[in-house]
């Protein structure tokens, strides 16, 4: 049986979809932030792989085909962006101000915490691009001399955390405006957070998509400056 499961091309993808649906079901039953479908799917997949003794490589050889569509899906984030174009133009200054402040806050906090924990320069630049989309973040980390695989891990954890905490954090800071929610979620937690913003509403999703692009580009420039500060 285990032999079959490690051989199967579709089992990994099947598991991911099944557990994501399970997460959606749990959330519809109990409205608790801990029943985040993405978190539920990750935890259940890890548990199932351990219980069935399936190595990660075997799972990934099938599951990678779902991730294969990530680039075209990210490209398609332009569609909700276009749907909200008028609103975007009307609020461009508010949106831009939020994203700029968020990108600077992210790098400044990494700087402060790196100094507090006495991190090496390598650890500091590994964490510097942590809030932006993986593909840009690992590029920055590599160019500045950071540890690229760890940057990728930190970026994904940031995204999942932003996806889980989006609603509680917005409540905590009294963020009620959909445009402001979109800026906050996208700037703090890139595409994985944006998946959550899409669930909250069309405006949130579109603004969050835009924030991925703008905060990513700002961090390309900002991280070069920040890399000299520690």
């Amino acid at each position: 049986m285990v032999d079959f499961l490690t051989q199967s091309v579709f089992f990994g993808a099947f598991l991911s979809l099944l557990f994501y649906e399970a997460g959606l079901y749990l959330r519809s039953k109990w409205k608790l932030p801990v029943f985040n479908p993405l978190l539920v799917a990750i935890v259940l997949t890890v548990a199932a792989l351990a219980a069935l003794k399936i190595p990660y490589e075997a799972y990934f050889s099938g599951a990678k085909y779902i991730s294969y569509l990530l680039t075209p899906a990210t490209v398609c984030l332009a569609i909700p962006l276009y749907e909200q174009f008028e609103m975007l133009k009307k609020n461009s200054i508010a949106i831009l101000a939020g994203i700029v402040s968020g990108a600077i806050t992210s790098m400044a906090l990494v700087l402060i915490l790196a100094a507090a924990f006495r991190f090496s320069h390598e650890s500091y630049v590994t964490l510097l691009p942590k809030s932006i989309t993986t593909a840009i973040g690992i590029e920055i980390s590599g160019q500045l001399g950071g540890n690229v695989p760890i940057t990728a891990v930190v970026i994904i954890v940031t995204g999942v955390l932003g996806n889980i905490l989006a609603e509680p954090v917005c409540r905590l800071f009294g963020i009620t405006n959909p445009i402001a929610k979109g800026v906050g979620i996208g700037t703090a937690s890139h595409a994985i957070g944006t998946a959550k913003a899409m669930e909250l509403g069309k405006v949130e999703g579109a603004i969050s998509s835009l924030s991925i692009v703008v905060s990513g580009l700002l961090t390309v420039i900002g991280s070069i400056v920040f890399s000299y500060l520690y």
């Binding site: 101000a97 924990f117 954090v169 800026v183 703090a188 937690s189 924030s211």
Partner: peptide, 20 residues
């Protein structure tokens, strides 16, 4: 680092946009 920055970046950028 991950928890502090994620929460504060979301809070700060959201608040700034809401203010404007």
């Amino acid at each position: 680092v991950v928890v502090v920055t994620t929460v504060l970046v979301m809070g700060v950028s959201g608040r700034v946009t809401q203010h404007f």
